[in-house]
Each structure stands twice: as structure tokens, then as C-alpha cells.
Design a binder for these strands. Structure first.
Length: 603
DNA sequence: GCCGTTTTCGGCCCGACTGTTTTCAGTCG
């Protein structure tokens, strides 16, 4: 199912500082796709709160979704005509994209913001609050933000307000309490990358800078990133502060010294900069990549060898033993180089000492993608376009897995339409020797564990993906029983996005994962790492648990458009964090082996 | 606001669930 953004609290889409407002055309600010998408989402939210035409609102949301799925930057495209060729973007929205890119602003959005303060949108992120109740709060209750809501609830000022019975009020109180507990907001890796890549390029081009790396959890490929740790290698002194003031994505420079600076990007992400000499760069890269627990383990090992380890190098007394490169540092400690994704102190140091680190899977190891959608359900491209795009990316197969009919929103296939699609795929495969389209479906697991399509229909498919799309809040017992019952069915190949989480929006469902793993192992059936940036589900920890339990993994893009096929790289990052090798991943197998393995999932 | 076995404007996704009601509106996916 598509992941719909319901508000996007915490994100500040556009430059709104006075200096930028006054900026002349063309904009001093280059907007990224995420900025434009966030502007359209904001517009959609504000229109919804106003009670605007639902289809107009949907048009903005659809455009935002299209933009988020692009693998190329809008700013690099050839103007409004090219924008209007994108699905769901017509003349009007293409013009607004152009306006945003040119000026950094959208007048229609500015007008909307004058009618409804943008902080009102944050209310949409709370459970039970949709546009109608938010409008009621704003108009009748004078609630303009989440703090106002908390005060109104505390002062019993919502009692008697239509639509705010005791049930809703209790839910809101619980949600606010939970919110207060949450620490600093982290952004998905995919979003962080949109800011980190251009920042790195900007710094790399500065005179005197030899090398730039973004370290921290970003380099380790964690699903979310709390801040960016940027390391610059420079042999001579550089004036970092002055250079950073010219960087348009940087909203504030909070500290600026000779070797250290800090600031905040326009999307709210904190960035810490460190300037290092070449002889220390490797040890600094290691130190700032972390994780903290990994570093503690490595420092302890250094001590055991009679060394002292810091970001400046590995020392014996005052003599530097290593520090120029990470490889040299690890080698001096008797260790193989450890890929950043493994540096969580989950056994990687011992494995490196025993020269037993796995050769982690890479994007280029993948032979196919086993979960993509077409226009037949909720995708944007045709079967032919998805197949051609997958082939163009060097894959040798792709499984078309449109939704079965149960999920209303996704315009799912019934048995008849699925049969039509099967015929279409057969026809497509006939004229093609070096690429194969596999017949599949993503079938809903209903609340009682039954599937949304009958076995007789599923038997005609090469691959059947099952997934939970509703009722995420069941107890662990019920949710587990539901999934186990689905896995009993004769034609189940893959359990997709097993926990149903959406980063920052929906927590993982309660599940007795051990029992699911055991059922998957015995059956056998595969578990998916869904690479959609907001899902990354299985996460690294559960994917490793699956691996340790002998359950194999499918890494899938869940692409809803040709552009989205590229997000599979984020699934691969999670697989690497789970210690997976090529052999552990179903879709790293050549077609013949894949068919054989899928055949074993049949009963 | 987009789209079109299109040419000018009507159709656009809809069922399940929840909470608030007393037959339904709003939320969610």
C-alpha cells in the first residue's frame, strides 16, 4: 500500500527567514525534491483544514508522492513542460513547482498560510484528528497548535465541543503524553541523504579541502538519522565559517571555530563539522562513525594492546601508530576493516579479529525485484513500463505484485482482473529471452488470518506476497495468530513488511516474532525487507534475527513507479546492517534458482 | 487540480472502523 503522508510535523519545508524572503529571482536557495513535496503536502493539509474540495487536496498529495518517488532532482529537469509530464502533475502544479524552484516561494501557499497558521497542521499528526476536527478546534476552540490543544484539554475547554466526546479526549491526552516522552526527532535516512549529498559536494569543492565524509549513523546506514557528522580533511587551514555562510541549505550557524562548527539545516537537521589533518582523518572517521558501543569496544582493545586511541590517532606513548586511514587503524589492532553498517558492537569486533566478517550484500548483487506495483492497482506506471525500467537497471527479473481487491484505497485486482494481468504478462514474456516478468500479487491478510484471494487463483502465480494492511493495533497474541494462520495457506511465498511500521508515523505492530520466524523457517517462506524509505521493514535487528534463525530474506522496492525502483538501495543498507550476504537474499539468486526456491514454498 | 477510446467538463476509491450518536460523520489506510 502506498504510504500516505498525513501531515509532516517537524519538517520545515521552505526557507522563511527574512533574508531569503527578500531574495531576488533566481532563488538563492536550491530547493530539493523533498522541499517541493513538503510544500505540496502543506498545501494539501491547509486546504483540507479549510474544507476544500477533496479531489483538489488529493491532487496536491498525489503530486507530492510523485515528487518523493523521483530519483532525479526537479531542479535538474528542463522546466515546467518536463514537470507536467510527471504523473499527477498538470499545468497548474508544474507552474507551482517552477515558481518554488525559481523563487523559493509559492504565492498560493503563502496565501493559505495567512488564512491558517501552519502550526495548526501539526494537529493532524495526532490520532483521531482529521481535517474536520482540526477545523473545529481552530475555529471554535481557538486552538492554533499542539500546546494550545494541551492547554484546552487540561482546562476542560473542549468538553461539549461537537465531535470531542470523552473517548477522543482520552486518546488525545494519551497521545500528548506519549509525544512529550519522545526525544529529539530523527529523520529517515532517505531524507537525510537529500541534504547530505549536496552538502558534501559543496564542501568537497572548497579550496584546500582534500576529502569530505559524512560519518555518524548516516554512514552506518541506520534507518533514521538524528544529525549529520561531517568530516573535512584539509592539510592547511581553511575558513570553514565563512564558507558555510554561503551554503544555502544552512539556516543557522550556531558555532564556528577553526576546526569545529555546528549549524542547523533548513529541514531542522543539526550538522556538526570537524576539520582534520590527513594524518588523523582515518581515526577521526572511525571515531565519528561510531557507534558509541563499537567505539568503546575498540578503545578497550587498543588499551589491551598498550595503545591509546582517540579521534586524532592510535598512539603508543606519544608515537602515532595509525590514524591516516581506517584500514591502517584496524590493521594495527589486528582487525580486518569493518564495514560501517556492522559497527554496532554486535559481534563485529570478534569476527574481524577472527578474519570471519561476512562479505555483505551489495546493490549490484541483486538479480531482480520481487515486489512492485503497476497502474492496475495503486502504481503510476504500466506493466510494460515497470518491466522495462527494471530491465534498464540491469535486473533480470521483476515480480508484478499488485494489490488484491480487499484494500479499497488501492483499487485492487479481483480474480478476473488478475487473470487478465497473467495473460498480459505471458504475452510480454514471449518476446523476451533475457528478462522475465514474474506473475504475483500482494494479498491482504484479513483480520482472521484468511487471505483476500482464494487458493485457486493464487496457484496460477509465480509468487504470492501476503501482508497486513489493516488492524495494526491488535494484541501480540491476535496479530501473531493472524499471521501464522496466513502462513499456513498453500501458496504463500513472502511475508511483506511484517511489522507494518511507518517511520515517525506508526509504530511496529505487536508480534511474537520468534513464532513467526519458526513458522517461516518450517514452511518455508521468506520475509521481506521492504525498502520504502518510510518503512524499512524488517528493520536491521529483525532481519538479523531472521538470518540467525535460518530464514531467508527478500529485499524489495515495493515501487509504485519506475523511479521508485531505486529505493531498493535503502533495503540493501538494512540488509548489510543485518549481516546478510548474497547467499542469504532470495532475489540475489539467478532466475532458475529463484524459481526452484519459490517452488519449495508451495504445498 | 488532474485527466481523457478527450476537445470541455464530469469523474475522480471506498470499505472498515471508531466514536459519537441514535442513523451517521469522521478517520484511516
Amino acid at each position: 500500500m502506498r504510504v500516505r503522508a498525513k501531515g509532516s510535523p517537524g519538517r520545515r519545508p521552505l526557507a522563511r527567514s527574512p533574508s531569503r524572503k527578500a531574495a531576488a529571482t533566481p532563488a538563492a536557495v536550491t530547493l530539493h525534491n523533498e522541499d517541493v513535496a513538503a510544500a505540496f503536502d502543506e498545501m494539501a493539509d491547509l486546504l483540507a483544514i479549510e474544507g476544500e474540495n477533496a479531489f483538489r487536496i488529493r491532487a496536491y498529495r498525489r503530486a507530492a508522492q510523485t515528487i518523493r518517488g523521483l530519483s532525479r532532482e526537479l531542479a535538474a529537469m528542463q522546466g515546467t513542460e518536463a514537470f507536467a509530464e510527471l504523473p499527477g502533475i498538470g499545468a497548474d502544479l508544474a507552474g507551482k513547482i517552477g515558481e518554488l524552484l525559481q523563487t523559493g516561494h509559492c504565492q498560493a501557499l503563502e496565501r493559505q498560510r495567512r488564512r491558517i497558521p501552519s502550526a495548526v497542521r501539526d494537529l493532524l499528526g495526532l490520532p483521531g484528528l482529521g481535517p474536520v476536527r482540526v477545523r473545529a478546534l481552530f475555529k471554535a476552540g481557538k486552538v492554533r497548535n499542539i500546546d494550545d490543544l494541551a492547554r484546552a484539554l487540561a482546562g476542560n475547554r473542549l468538553d461539549g465541543l461537537k465531535g470531542f466526546g470523552s473517548g477522543i479526549r482520552a486518546r488525545l491526552n494519551a497521545a500528548l503524553a506519549e509525544r512529550a516522552k519522545q526525544s529529539q526527532r530523527r529523520v529517515p535516512l532517505f531524507v537525510a541523504a537529500q541534504y547530505a549529498k549536496p552538502l558534501r559536494e559543496f564542501l568537497q569543492a572548497l579550496p584546500g579541502v582534500d576529502r569530505v565524509e559524512v560519518a555518524g549513523s548516516y554512514r552506518r546506514g541506520r534507518d533514521t538519522v538524528g544529525d549529520l557528522d561531517v568530516l573535512l580533511c584539509a592539510s592547511a587551514r581553511i575558513d570553514l565559517g565563512t564558507a558555510l555562510k554561503r551554503y544555502p541549505d544552512l539556516e543557522r550557524l550556531t558555532a564556528s571555530g577553526e576546526t569545529k562548527a555546528s549549524g542547523t539545516l533548513r529541514n531542522g537537521l543539526q550538522v556538526d563539522f570537524r576539520v582534520l589533518k590527513p594524518q588523523s582523518f582515518g581515526s577521526a572517521l572511525h571515531y565519528f562513525t561510531g557507534s558509541r558501543d563499537h567505539n568503546i569496544h575498540i578503545r578497550r582493545r587498543a588499551q589491551e594492546h598498550g595503545y591509546k586511541l582517540s579521534e586524532y590517532g592510535l598512539f603508543k606513548g606519544n608515537r602515532r601508530i595509525a590514524g591516516k586511514t581506517e584500514e591502517g587503524l584496524f590493521a594495527a589492532l589486528g582487525l580486518d576493516w569493518i564495514p560501517p553498517e556492522l559497527r554496532e558492537d554486535r559481534g563485529e569486533v570478534e569476527a574481524a579479529a577472527a578474519h570471519a566478517l561476512p562479505r555483505l550484500i551489495e546493490v549490484t548483487d541483486l538479480r531482480g525485484d520481487l515486489h512492485v506495483h503497476t497502474r492496475a492497482s495503486d502504481g503510476s506506471n504500466s506493466l510494460q513500463e515497470m518491466a522495462a525500467a527494471a530491465r534498464g537497471r540491469g535486473l533480470s527479473y521483476v515480480a508484478i505484485t499488485d494489490h488484491a481487491e480487499h484494500v479499497g484505497v488501492t483499487h485492487g485486482l479481483d480474480a478476473e482482473r488478475l487473470a487478465q494481468q497473467i495473460d498480459e504478462i505471458d504475452e510480454l514474456n514471449e518476446g523476451c529471452a533475457d528478462f522475465t516478468v514474474l506473475k504475483g500479487a500482494e494479498v491482504d491478510i484479513l483480520e482472521d488470518g484468511s487471505l483476500a484471494l482464494p487458493d485457486a487463483v493464487l496457484r496460477r502465480l509465480d509468487i504470492v506476497i501476503v501482508a497486513v494492511h489493516t488492524q495494526f493495533a491488535l494484541s501480540a497474541d491476535k496479530q501473531t495468530a493472524r499471521i501464522l494462520r496466513a502462513l499456513e495457506r498453500p501458496c504463500v511465498s513472502v511475508l511483506a513488511h511484517p511489522f507494518g511500521r511507518l517511520l515517525g508515523e506508526r509504530p511496529p505492530c505487536a508480534l511474537d516474532f520468534e513464532r513467526v520466524l519458526e513458522a517461516a523457517r518450517q514452511r518455508p517462506c521468506y520475509l521481506e525487507i521492504n525498502a520504502q524509505p518510510a518503512r524499512l521493514d524488517l528493520d536491521d535487528v529483525h532481519a538479523k534475527a531472521a538470518h540467525d534463525h535460518g530464514v531467508r530474506i527478500s529485499i524489495a522496492s515495493d515501487a509504485h513507479s519506475t523511479d521508485q525502483l531505486d529505493v531498493i538501495q535503502y533495503g540493501v543498507r538494512q540488509a548489510r546492517r543485518a549481516w546478510l550476504t548474497r547467499d542469504d537474499v532470495l532475489n540475489a539468486r539467478p532466475l532458475g534458482q529463484l524459481r526452484e526456491l519459490l517452488g519449495r514454498t508451495r504445498r
